[in-house]
Design a protein around this nucleic acid. Sequence first.
RNA 1: GGGCGAUUAGCUCAGUUGGUUAGAGCGCCACCUUUACACGGUGGAUGUCAGGAGUUCGAGUCUCUUAUCGCCCACCA
Length: 915
Amino acid sequence: MTDSADISISAHLTALPDRVGVDGLEDKWRAVWDEDGTYTFHNPGERSAVYSIDTPPPTVSGHLHVGHVFSYTHTDIIARYKRMNGFNVLYPMGWDDNGLPTERRVQNYYGVRVDTSMQYDPDFVPPFEGTDGKKMDAKDQVPISRRNFVELCEKLTAQDELQFEALWRKLGLSIDWSRTYHTIGEHAQRVAQKAFLRNLERGQAYQQDAPVLWDVTFQTAVAQAELESREYPGFYHRVAFRFEDGTPIYIETTRPELLAACGALIAHPDDERYQRYFGQFVYSPLFHVKVPILAHPAAEMDKGAGIAMCCTFGDQTDVQWWRDLHLPLRSIIQRNGRIVMEMPDWIEDAEGKRVFEQIEGKTTFSARKAIVEELREVGDLDGEPTPTKRMTNFYEKGDKPLEIVTSRQWYLENGGTDKALNAELIERGKELNFHPDFMRVRYENWVHGLNGDWLISRQRFFGVPFPLWYPLNEAGEPDYANPLLPSEDVLPIDPSTDIPAGYTEEQRNQPGGFMAEPDIMDTWATSSLTPQIVTEWAEPGQEAFFASTFPMDLRPQGQDIIRTWLFSSVDRAQLENHCLPWANATLSGWILDPDHKKMSKSKGNVVVPNKPIEQFGADAVRYWAASARLGLDATYDEGQMKIGRRLAIKLLNATKFALAIGREDENHHVADEASATWDPQDVTEALDRAAMAKMALVVKQATNFLERYEHSKALEVIENYFWQFCDDYIELVKNRAYGTPDAQGNVPAEAAVKSARTALGMGLDAFARLLAPFLPYATEEVWSWMHAGEGSVHTAAWPKPLPYATAAFNVSPDVLAHAGATLAALRGIKSKAKVSMKTPIERVRLAVSDNVRESLRQSLADIREAGRVIGDFSLEHAQELINQMQSDGDETSDAAEETIVVTESELGEPPAKKR
RNA sequence: GGGCGAUUAGCUCAGUUGGUUAGAGCGCCACCUUUACACGGUGGAUGUCAGGAGUUCGAGUCUCUUAUCGCCCACCA
């Protein structure tokens, strides 16, 4: 037997406001939560008592977007739910201030650019502040030192972070604000450098001098994960190469400007048109360079002329040919995207040299124009160029096609070359619970399609530096194979200002001295370690913290960065910890504008989130976000926010009503405080028990949904019952709860009154808890009325079915459903007659099925009062309806509703209208 | 070209393992100021379930196919 003391609810009731509203609740409760440390993480010391969340650090240089509100609300609902379930929730916040977006924003905002040759100026003042939005020519930007630039980055991101924090707080995210990190901060840098050094030690990180994809605008290498293919207009040029005797052989190319870099012509080994030429040589037009005709299976017979010119490098197939066929490296594109200034040594022909001089230093675009002119003049251009659209690789943040240049870069293993690691990462993907599950496919597609290890070095300025130096030999040349490494305890370091052990600053860049690795790490090389950053991985003295928080429970993120953030995090945890970094990943969808277009800055249809929060309230905006499932795109819908606002207001009013009964003075004020105990044993009336039975069911369903990360369904069942509770249950028990005498003047029994009041109290207490993850402000407000001095609803216990099931005492929830349907039928009589709901019903006959009649009998007095039936109220058989019920054997409340039919009614005199 | 998701009322969306007459809210229409709520309440009308074919006694649901929308990957001669 359960002791009722265990399941009864003690309430401390405060005075109630005469009128309630949702406006202003945000500021009121946010201040209280801050002061009380409601969301502060307390490490219980055991992993099972913690729920840890790897919060996505927003790119602070990006703009606030209503999409942020959407996905962060989903995570907050889970955080609040877990907290109410007794978990110590580690819910930190990070800021992604590392990387190119910040660099670009700083350049525009302050009108500056980095010049690595400049010295640090401690008194530097930027020429502008807030030129954001205006386009500024690079030549007008003031050159400054790298260190000055980094300082400006830090200054600006600090401002951006304040904006984000203000939004998150207003939205009511239950973040522990004492646990924040920056991807460029000292801690994150230490983790990134430490992990890199350990990767290096294990041979998982390595350098390679090889062709890489190169962005000419930002002048940095980029990784496979950062590629984006876009349609790019071009022209096919049909160009003649010639044999010794002048016989032409035609190739087609979209990049004639690379003619000087051609090292071979290549056709498929099975291509009968060209088989007889394999091994022979031809001369390139204009430059007259002798190149072989070779066979390689990557050549496609049906593309262009079927034979291609291989240049180093026009595309990734060129790289493959160059490697497989051991072709000479003939590079003519500089890292800024222009043709080299020096005459290539493989061009020996005088006319060839003259042509090359025409294109030296030109952009690929102008060089192409010049080459086409020259080709046309000598007659080696067959016909006119024909326009084509082709898909070309771009850096996702760049606007010029990527070039391929050969350079020394750092790589990290990611399964792109190592089949065993690839299989392990696929396996990890199967272990991870994706919500929704179909997102796993995107992960697997990506891992299967990897074609190389992860290029992690970037030739940029604002980021985490590689923590190493290279010794210089007597000729001043670096020994890349034997880098000088710092010890872990001095991390983070910046090799451009810090000095390797055993050297002095004077030896920097001197023969026999050392030089710093100039590159920084890819921003994802830091972001991929957020699980390790927030759980204090490898921090001396934090071993216990790490043990009780890692592997984490949840990674929430956008579906667009599965290949980057999610995958790279899994990779890093596999290399470092040999496990998944988290057990669950939730993927949110996009926000579409009302015309079903994806919201994006470039489309100019972005809604700034502060506006709807101000207009409808944070709870209302959260409600809109919560009503969308994970992984599905949602439409920006202010109508949905209005509904959320209405729900919050309804909760305030309904709770106020339930708590005010029996405590009001003659003016309906409730000024006193009171104690109450809602004991399930006091719920004795059938209708009240039915309401509790339904509550037990709803609690169970909502809990199951939230356990499965289906917050929208949880909200739906809670909300549906809440409205039924308000519209039907409260209306039905109102008179009894007040102790109002019936038409015959009979006063309800004391126990019946107590039963109603107890069920109302238990019900609204439950709704406050059930809705707390969704509407944190309104629920906290009503909680404060009934549990004054007991702390926040957000640290209260999530409801369990037991107290409600106990109160239900085996009464079916159908009793409430049937009573509600009957009440609706009585209302329908009045609505059709277009009279007030207060109008009494003299006489009414309802046709109902047997089981409904049985059920209604238990709540008939309440129905009679709520419907104001003052005379005959008969429930009769309706044979055809009964047959219907029996034929399908269905006794659900839905079917029951349709078996209540008004067969006859007579209305009394409507009440006199009040002025 | 491959893959994933979507397509249900004017709008936003539910619809579990196939089951009788497909639901909710908004909006719309009508009515009601009723001692929790006019930031309200009550009642009502509303559908070629994108199209086609198939499996089945029975299909919004399963299979195939077409179309449209969104996204991911692959196509650079």
